[in-house]
């Protein structure tokens, strides 16, 4: 089948404004959108720029807007798009460096502000810090985050104000707040109990729908809102 790819193009060294370019590409229904981008870059226009690394939905490098919604290009098959016209654009809410590449630094700044590491100053036991299966299950969903930014850049609250920490940072805070081995839950909850913390979330669900790892992002944010309101992690 022939697919018409309409791709957002912007080269800061040449272009004053972004524009779209259209490429006609032969594709199999089982091809991924990333394969089509690779084809364009390899055989039609080598100046096309996009991020990719593992190409298997693990590294989270190739998140972009595909026909108007955030996906990982390596996880979307042509047959799943149900259209022979595919529009590919960079994610919203982060500045575009070139073509489909966005500046991820503001996103990682918010991630780092959540102290995304285990905090426990108690004397380590002789063995591992043990945890029951139930205690592990409590935060299992949020361990799956690959920091692709699909959730944060699908959030209208983040589009409106980039001071909002965004869903991905909150998901990674959740991963440690509800970890029985961690001792900095109160500190993280205090960071999130802010006008640019969890209260910017208006329960829109764009983040949950966009997450390529199917993390229940809005539920994680809701659990943190509840923990702040009740003062309890139960």
């Amino acid at each position: 089948m022939q697919v018409k790819l309409k791709i957002f193009r912007y080269n800061p060294e040449k272009d004053k404004k972004p524009h779209y370019e259209t490429y006609k590409v032969e594709a199999e229904p089982t091809d991924r959108v990333l394969d089509l981008l690779e084809y364009v870059k390899g055989y039609i226009d080598g100046t096309l720029s996009f991020r990719r690394s593992c190409a298997h939905g693990v590294c989270g490098s190739d998140a972009m807007r595909i026909n108007g919604v955030n996906y990982l290009a390596c996880k979307v098959l042509v047959k799943d798009i149900k259209s022979s016209k595919i529009t590919i654009e960079p994610m919203l809410g982060l500045s575009v460096i070139k073509d489909l590449i966005v500046d991820m630094e503001p996103f990682f700044d918010h991630f780092r502000s959540m102290m995304p590491y285990l905090v426990n100053d108690e004397t380590p036991p002789g063995t591992e810090r043990l945890q029951s299966p139930e205690e592990r299950e409590r935060f299992d969903d949020t361990t799956k985050c690959i920091l692709c930014a699909a959730c944060t850049t699908s959030c209208p609250s983040y589009w409106a104000n980039d001071k909002y920490v965004g869903p991905a940072a909150i998901v990674n805070a959740h991963r440690f707040i509800f970890d029985s081995r961690d001792r900095a839950a109160a500190e993280r909850l205090n960071i999130l109990n802010d006008q640019f913390g969890v209260y910017r979330c208006h329960t829109i669900f764009n983040c949950t729908i966009a997450c390529p790892r199917e993390i229940q992002v809005t539920t994680a944010i809701g659990e943190i809102k509840k923990a702040i309101a009740t003062g309890s992690l139960d």
Binding site: Y10, P12, P18, R65, N67, G68, V69, L92, G93, L94, S95, V96, I97, K98, D103, P106, S154, P156, W159, A160, D162, H202, T203, I204, F205, N206, I209
Partner: peptide, 24 residues
Amino acid sequence: MGLNRRVRFFAGLRYRGGGPMWAW
């Protein structure tokens, strides 16, 4: 460097969030 991060009104409207986004 690069394009401003600002999301214009119609660019936001074009995001296909589906039913929950329209409800919001």
